[in-house]
Amino acid sequence: MTSLPDGFRKGRGALSNTESRFDSLSREADAAMLADLEALHGESPAPRTTIAIEPARTIISRNQSPDVPFDQSINMYRGCEHGCSYCFARPNHAYLGLSPGLDFETKLFAKPNAATLLEQELRKKHYKPSVIALGTNTDPYQPIERKFQLTRGILEVLERFQHPVAITTKSFLVSRDIDILARMARNGLARVFMSVTTLDADIARKMEPRASTPAKRIEGIRLLAEAGVPAGVLFAPVIPALTDYDLENVLKACSEVGATSAGFVMLRLPLEVHGIFIEWLEEHFPGRKQHVLSIIENMRNGKHNDATFTSRMRGTGIFAELVRKRFEIACRRLGLNQERHPLRTDLFRVPPEDSPQGSLF
């Protein structure tokens, strides 16, 4: 991998356009061209976000993973402008012939027919309702949602069908949809988890450059809780020797504004994410790199990644066990995870289709 100049990657998480596992050619920055562009503009031009329209054929994804608490999910977008350096969804961009590096956060895809497809699937005769999760791959409230409003369209359909939804996000933008979420929550149909990795705004800015600041995420939890929407905090990922120290602080700050549940996930470095994250560490925290990687090896059976079901989210070994115990003690002290009612599926109903005949028939 060849890192790009500082100005060219301003506001981005990845430092380069690393090759994917499917690439037969390597990518390398053209230093002469970048120098010419810098001379022309007075500074290195940052890569712009481009959005391609992807007419989807289906919209509900299904999984049978034993360590994932849902079997249905929807992703309205491919790629994510938040640019989190550790994002486990980055390798998916390789299937599009693009880099999991900068391409993942600058070359995005939107599925404008998402809500229409969802309604069609929910109307199928043999459809059985179960919680639909949003935010399992890319963030449903990333910046382009302000323009496309695909997530809001999905929520409008789910509310009409009285269908349960669980949302995970890093964005304050979720507060825009509190009107729908509050109505659904009154019937036990909605829950939101806000992912908060650290309270350190400087680390967050480097690690998740276009996500909401930690303070705004906590404010989002407060607004959701005040509106009656069950809100939780997801301390994820836990990055050893970098953010793990903040576990209790994050849980305390979120519980004080109304979070009632919490979870955590250990850092995962699958496929291309491994190189992207290590390159990021070398750039921003070179003095901690070896310490971070040595602890990762300790909790991943001597490797940097272990995809084994049940342990991939929590890790193994002394460090993983210590984080688990710290998490449980903090939750007990703060009253988190005391009671969590399952979202309801018994209210699901298929509303009548709009008819050009109006109400005459």
Rank of each mutant, 00 (worst) to 15 (best):
S195H: 04
T197F: 01
V196P: 01
L223Q: 15
M207K: 01
M194D: 05
T213R: 12
S195T: 15
A211H: 01
L223D: 13
I221Q: 11
D200N: 13
T197M: 09
G220Y: 09
I221M: 13
R217P: 10
I218V: 14
M207I: 08
D202S: 13
E208C: 05
R205S: 13
R205I: 02
R222G: 13
L223M: 14
A211P: 01
P209S: 10
I203C: 04
R222W: 13
E208I: 03
L224S: 07
R217Q: 10
K206W: 01
R205P: 04
A204R: 08
I203K: 09
K216I: 08
D202T: 13
I203M: 10
R210T: 00
R217V: 11
A201F: 03
R210I: 00
A211V: 05
P209F: 06
T213S: 15
I221H: 10
M194R: 07
A215V: 14
R222E: 15
G220T: 11
G220E: 09
K216A: 15
I221K: 10
S195K: 00
S212M: 07
R222S: 15
R222M: 14
R222T: 14
G220V: 11
K206L: 12
I218L: 12
P214K: 09
V196R: 04
D200R: 00
T198D: 00
P209Q: 08
A201M: 06
F193H: 11
P214H: 09
R205A: 15
L224W: 06
S212Q: 05
L199V: 04
L224K: 07
T197W: 03
D200H: 01
P209K: 06
I221P: 09
R217L: 11
R217K: 14
K216P: 07
G220F: 09
V196L: 08
L223Y: 12
L199K: 03
T198S: 08
E219T: 12
T197L: 06
P214W: 09
E219Y: 09
L199I: 06
K216C: 10
R205N: 08
R222A: 15
A211R: 02
G220M: 09
A215I: 13
S195G: 05
P209G: 08
D200T: 02
I203V: 15
S195E: 00
A215Q: 14
D202A: 15
V196E: 03
V196M: 05
L224R: 07
R205E: 11
A201S: 15
T198E: 01
L223E: 14
L224A: 08
P209T: 06
A215M: 14
I218G: 03
D202N: 13
A215K: 13
